[in-house]
């Protein structure tokens, strides 16, 4: 497997700079090396996020997905309880760890519809969360954190 960061392309889009990941998906077989590897993070997440709280946003639309170090970021919108379109950011694991968990490549694309995203809210009260899980409309699950991190296809045990 190539060292993906050597081939990362950086380009500008209208109104924003977006770091685009290369177009490949980590073969599931490669994940065998990391099956059962406990997911650890260098940062003490509780400093920045309320890990005892959980928030879920349903029917979200992906705005951007940046696979970088120290943290990847998923930006998405959804319609809040007042009927307003709201934009949120979700902190992901580092690019290196996302790849190792089978969550690299272009797993999220701008415009993708997700059934839900789950995470821990930022202690600052901003529209930002530590994203732990995303469910696609077809039922696939992208588990970002925890021992079962990775992609689980819909219907799989």
């Amino acid at each position: 497997m190539s060292v993906f960061l050597n081939s990362v392309a950086f380009y500008e889009r209208e109104g924003s700079n977006v770091l685009k990941s290369p177009k490949f998906v980590l073969p599931l077989a490669a994940l065998a090396f990391f099956v059962g590897v406990p997911v650890t993070a260098h940062h003490s997440g509780s400093t920045y996020f309320d890990l005892d709280a959980e928030i879920v946003h349903n029917n979200v639309t992906v705005v951007s997905y940046n696979l970088v170090n120290p943290h990847g970021r998923l930006v998405f919108t959804f319609t809040d309880a007042d009927g307003n379109e709201t934009e949120w950011g979700g902190e992901l694991a580092s690019a290196n760890n996302m790849h190792r968990r089978g969550l690299g490549g272009e797993i999220f694309q701008p415009g993708d519809k997700l059934a839900s995203v789950t995470g821990s809210p930022s202690r600052s009260g901003s529209n930002f969360m530590r994203l732990t899980r995303a469910v696609f409309e077809n039922g696939d699950v992208a588990q970002v954190t925890g021992r079962n991190a990775g992609v689980t296809r819909a219907g799989a045990e």
């Binding site: 060292v3 960061l5 050597n6 970088v68 170090n69 120290p70 580092s94 790849h99 600052s124 901003s126």
Partner: peptide
């Protein structure tokens, strides 16, 4: 692997 880091994606 390489660990390239972009500070703009480190903040909260």
């Amino acid at each position: 692997w390489e660990y390239e880091c972009i500070p703009e994606f480190g903040g909260i």
